[in-house]
Computed example of a mutant assay.
Amino acid sequence: MSKHVAISPEEAADRLAIRELIEGYAHCADRRDAKGQMSLFTADTHFVVYMNAKDPTPSQELHSREALAPVFAELNKYDATTHFLGQSTIFTLTGDRGTGETYCLAHHVTADGGSRRLMVASLRYLDRFVKMDGVWLFAERRLYVDWLEERGLS
Rank of each mutant, 00 (worst) to 15 (best):
E11R: 12
R128D: 11
Y103D: 03
L21I: 10
D33W: 03
L148R: 15
M119I: 06
S122G: 13
A67W: 04
V49W: 10
R128F: 01
V109I: 15
A34G: 05
A139R: 15
Y125L: 00
A106K: 05
H46G: 00
D127G: 00
H27K: 11
H107Y: 14
M38Q: 14
V48T: 13
L148S: 07
F138V: 07
T102C: 09
R117Y: 07
E74T: 07
F84K: 08
D112F: 04
D112K: 15
L21E: 09
M132A: 12
A53S: 14
R19D: 11
N76C: 01
G100C: 06
T42M: 04
G114P: 00
G95R: 09
V5E: 12
I90F: 07
V135T: 14
V109F: 06
F129A: 03
D30S: 08
T92H: 13
D112Y: 07
Y25L: 10
H46P: 00
A67G: 02
L153F: 08
V49P: 06
D96E: 12
R142M: 03
H108M: 05
L118S: 02
T42F: 06
L137F: 15
K35E: 15
S88T: 15
T81R: 07
E140V: 06
R124Q: 03
T99M: 04
A29E: 02
I7V: 14
L16S: 09
R32L: 12
P58N: 10
E150V: 08
T89W: 06
F138P: 06
A106D: 01
H83C: 00
L21K: 15
V71Y: 14
T110M: 09
E23K: 09
E20H: 14
M1C: 02
H4S: 15
P70L: 02
R19A: 12
R142Q: 12
D79M: 04
K35D: 15
T81N: 07
L68C: 00
Y78S: 02
M132R: 15
Y78T: 01
L85S: 07
T57G: 05
T81I: 02
D44Y: 00
P58E: 04
V49D: 02
V135D: 05
T45P: 00
S88Y: 14
G24V: 01
E23P: 06
H83L: 01
E140D: 12
E149T: 11
L21G: 10
A106F: 04
E20I: 00
V49Y: 12
A69F: 08
L123M: 05
S122D: 14
L143C: 11
D127S: 06
G36W: 11
F138C: 03
R124G: 01
G86N: 10
K77N: 05
A67S: 07
L105K: 11
